[in-house]
């Protein structure tokens, strides 16, 4: 599979959209050459503000710019934005402003930099904020479509989670992102794997292996975590009876928790959540870390098989 960088796509797309959207302003906190907002900054220096290593200043200034009619994008690494939770809460979300936080270097695909930089809690933290929408693109095409949507028709506040690593391509130019709408990349009737981010491409590989074992797998890319696509989840619960969630995030308060909420209230079925098991990350090569944390393709296959073979929903209660 060909892989492309989502953050490169983000920076390039912002720079393209900046031409026609004169009210678009971009802020960064000394990481623009990594988040790739530097591409916009070089082209539109007047509308790019490097606030230094001062995330609180960045977020509150973003609010002031949005209150003055600007469409604002603010970027840094996901982990560092989290220190401004309260600025996001009060100055941005409570005031319900058009600020788009597009963060990079989320999750364990930060790799060698290690646990301090590998945030696996952010989706949960952001999902709890009223007015905030949470989007996790699975490939570069989806990232581009998300940015187009946010600039052309969306309104903030939004949280968009991007990675350091390149991700395998899943879509093409025809793909179009819509909030609250998931996409089904493969159909099957025995079990559904709902994925987020890079784990969607892992799920597709796992589905191929499971097919050879006689298990038909539906694979859903749940890029819109909030609002979440309840219909697709309930439909999958109803039609396949078993669901596995896979995410490059803690199993607490992320995709798995959201899916659990939806099926518990609407259509309880077997559910298995795969992700970071309430733990910090670790230094290593990104793709090695998935196996280390039992989140690789083989793990997805194993967990999915177990989930498929479960007899009844209540068997674990003794």
């Amino acid at each position: 599979m060909i892989s492309e960088s989502l953050r490169e796509t983000y920076g390039e797309e912002l720079a393209i959209l900046g031409e026609g959207h004169k009210n678009l302003v971009v802020l960064d906190a000394d990481l623009s050459s990594s988040t790739k907002t530097s591409i916009f900054g070089k082209k539109f220096p007047d509308r790019f503000f490097n606030m230094g290593i001062s995330e609180q200043s960045m977020v509150t200034a973003a609010a002031g710019l949005a209150l003055s009619g600007k469409k604002v994008f603010a970027s840094t690494f996901a982990v560092f934005l989290m220190r401004t939770y309260e600025q996001m809460r009060q100055s941005v979300c409570y005031n319900n402003l058009d600020v788009n936080f597009v963060v990079t270097h989320a999750g364990i695909t930060v790799g060698e930099d290690g646990a301090t930089h590998q945030i696996v809690e952010d989706v949960g933290i952001m999902s709890g904020l009223p007015n905030m929408k949470v989007i996790v693109p699975a490939d570069s095409y989806e990232a581009r479509s998300v940015i187009d949507y946010l600039v052309e028709s969306g309104t903030g506040p939004n949280y968009v989670r991007l990675s350091r690593e390149k991700f395998p391509l899943l879509y093409d130019d025809n793909y179009s992102f819509h909030p609250g709408v998931s996409s089904t990349l493969r159909d099957g009737s025995d079990i559904t794997i709902i994925g987020m981010g890079v784990m969607v491409s892992f799920a597709l590989k796992a589905a191929e292996i499971l097919k050879q074992k006689g298990i038909g797998v539906r694979v859903i890319n749940m890029s819109s975590i909030k609002p979440i696509d309840k219909k697709a989840i309930i439909k999958a619960a109803n039609e396949t009876g078993r669901i596995v969630t896979v995410e490059e995030h803690s199993i607490y308060n992320g995709l798995g928790s959201r899916v659990a909420e939806v099926i518990s209230e609407n259509h309880p079925v077997h559910l298995k959540r795969l992700g970071m098991m309430d733990t910090f990350g670790k230094s290593g090569k990104s793709w090695e870390l998935f196996d280390y944390f039992h989140m690789g393709v083989d793990d997805i296959v194993k967990v999915s098989e177990e989930c498929f073979r479960k007899e009844t929903y209540y068997e674990n209660i003794s």
Binding site: T60, A61, A63, G64, G69, E86
Partner: peptide, 14 residues
């Protein structure tokens, strides 16, 4: 602690 930063944003927009 947040209002001054918001003011910075408004002043930048001005």
């Amino acid at each position: 602690g947040q209002g001054l930063g918001v003011g910075v944003g408004m002043a930048l927009a001005g």
